[in-house]
Simulated assay, not measured.
Amino acid sequence: MRRIVITGATGAIGAALAKHYAEAHAKGCRLELHGRRSDVLDEVADACRRLGAEVETSRVDLNDDDALFAWLESLCAPTPPDLVIVNAGMNIDIGTDNQGEAWEDASRLLAINLRVPMAMGNFLGKHMRAAGRGQLVFMSSLAAYHGLPVTPSYSASKAGVKAYGEALRGWLAPYGVGVSVIMPGYVSSQMCHDMPGPKPFLWQPERAARRIATGVARNRARVSFPFPLDFGCWWLAVLPAAISQRLLKWLDYAEGSKS
């Protein structure tokens, strides 16, 4: 039976991924779902059970190292999971009056968006390497290509996740362990709609989940979408920074007003 772990299962993408895998593997799937919102987590778990999957849930505090590593240790007994999708995250912005991010909020964001994925990758990577099997999936963003002025801490955290996941892929590939970095554009969710700026090429979570699962099944190094936005963001990374920043301002990503 395939064992799949998903953190952030109460978010739009996480919930859609959980249901996708539950349906795709039916009775051959055991899901370990983690989320902070108990009511939503229970709803997602029940939906996956109705689709035929075995489901366990966890609400462990991912920012508590002792609790996190104890949970991961339990997941690796007797062997590591087949697939771990590190998806939990949050976003903040500079505010409608461009006053800037509160440092307390930025610190919390960096902890859950970057430190936790690194902690999980460090722990699980070693266990999967020893077992000679498994796959890690890290949730980055197209914002990792070039920082958005309206969401500096979020952009930085996702750039860090991208670099970390790419590095782990190089380390673990010789030992039969896969690593994929997911770089979505705008996917309909509360977090997405709360972000400032335009939302071009908005996808629904179910469509994003299908694209992610297809790329993960092929052990793609990077799964980025949608293509038009991915192509444009890639150019932001390779053009001179001054030009990229002018383009972002022209596209209304340099203002704190919400669109």
Rank of each mutant, 00 (worst) to 15 (best):
L51F: 05
W103G: 04
A106Q: 03
D66Q: 09
L110D: 04
N63H: 02
E54W: 01
A45L: 14
H34V: 02
P81E: 10
G160F: 01
R133E: 10
G100F: 12
E56P: 02
D42Q: 01
G121E: 09
R129L: 14
L136N: 04
P81I: 15
A88W: 06
P80A: 12
A163K: 12
D46K: 05
G147V: 02
A156L: 00
P117W: 01
N87D: 07
D105S: 08
A106C: 04
F69D: 10
L83C: 12
A77E: 13
G121A: 09
S74H: 12
P117G: 13
A111V: 04
G160S: 01
L110S: 09
A67W: 05
S38N: 08
A88K: 09
G35A: 04
Y154S: 08
A143Y: 04
L41C: 14
D97V: 10
A102V: 15
V60T: 02
V60I: 05
G147E: 00
V55R: 01
L114D: 12
A45W: 14
A70C: 04
A144I: 03
V44G: 00
G35Y: 01
L75W: 01
A67Q: 08
F69M: 07
L83K: 10
L142C: 10
R50Y: 08
S141Y: 06
V44D: 00
N98I: 14
Y145M: 13
L124C: 11
V150C: 10
M118K: 03
I92K: 13
M120A: 05
M120H: 00
N63P: 00
F69Q: 07
L68N: 08
M120S: 01
T79F: 03
